[in-house]
Design a binder for these strands. Structure first.
Lengths: 150, 150
DNA sequence: GGTGAGAACGATAACGATTCTCATTACCAT
DNA sequence: ATGGTAATGAGAATCGTTATCGTTCTCACC
């Protein structure tokens, strides 16, 4: 698929939305970056940089691996994607919402779901205080079985 | 230092304790593994495999890098050490208690402290249930500033 | 519609952490 | 002692990621 030449109204809307995502963060909305965003949007779970690159190639994108890494680093820096390191060594990327959130991981099918309601700030602050720390951020990962894999 | 030839009573006690840790897990207490355990015990924060190897060399241990990796993998598999992936790309290892716990990380000096009281099981179960998951485990990392770095 | 400066890009080399291979050595039951 | 198995060290191989560099694209300005 050629980015920039949407064939349906919905595609056009999605394209504009993705452009907006980038521009709001002060990042140029280049064709390559839009391709990466589009591919991320297509995947509801998380993907590695290499997987993403492979999928882009299947779609006849000429994107280079380095560009995929650069783009993912940029997007994560801007808070557009989450980076998960639950696979040993290899990092996984996932399009995510702006707000603070955590993740549920299915240990069988590797589905990833965002948990929007955090509500742990108090607990975190208390646990930190108990050891003389002041908490600035926290990460929570819940691993389990999703509805389909139970 | 030569493992196996303790010079003080306390050293002997520690040596026996470390042997016990390994044997209780069904792992042979070889000299190399005891060296790795000893080096881990000496460090209150977390270390990378390479750092650990470097320190062993400084102590004139002939341990190979591969052995350090093998031993750390074995120990983490047996639940004797925690593996943290808060550095990009590089894994950090840390001797830990048997019980379920979480970690406080100082973002400035990289000190690591265990939080023994979890108390999140209910919250975790509820968050999981809300999305149709059944939680089997969870990880929490709190990042902040420790008492000394505030 | 050029044009020039700087950003983005692709190909590939480089890098660094980790794992693999294999010949040698240590351990342990017999 | 001895034979079988596990552990080890050295170095090669692997693999994810990052750096380099020459080319191409983008966009504000003319």
């Amino acid at each position: 698929m050629i980015v920039g030449v949407p064939t349906r109204e919905q595609d056009l809307a999605e394209l504009l939305e993705r452009k907006g995502v980038l521009e709001r963060k002060g990042v140029r909305a280049t064709p390559r970056r839009l391709e990466v965003l589009e591919e991320l949007a297509r995947e509801s779970d998380d993907v590695t940089a290499q997987q993403l690159w492979g999928r882009l190639r299947e779609r006849d994108s000429g994107a280079g691996l380095a560009t995929v890494y650069r783009t993912l680093a940029l997007l994560s820096e801007k808070g557009v994607v989450d980076v998960l390191s639950h696979h040993g060594g290899e990092q996984c990327y996932r399009l995510c919402g702006d707000a603070h959130h955590h993740h549920l991981l299915c240990e069988k099918c590797h589905r990833v779901v965002e948990v929007q309601e955090c509500g742990l700030d108090e607990w975190v602050a208390a646990a930190a205080k108990q050891h003389g720390f002041v908490a600035t951020e926290h990460r929570v990962e819940i691993v389990g079985l999703c509805a389909d894999c139970r």
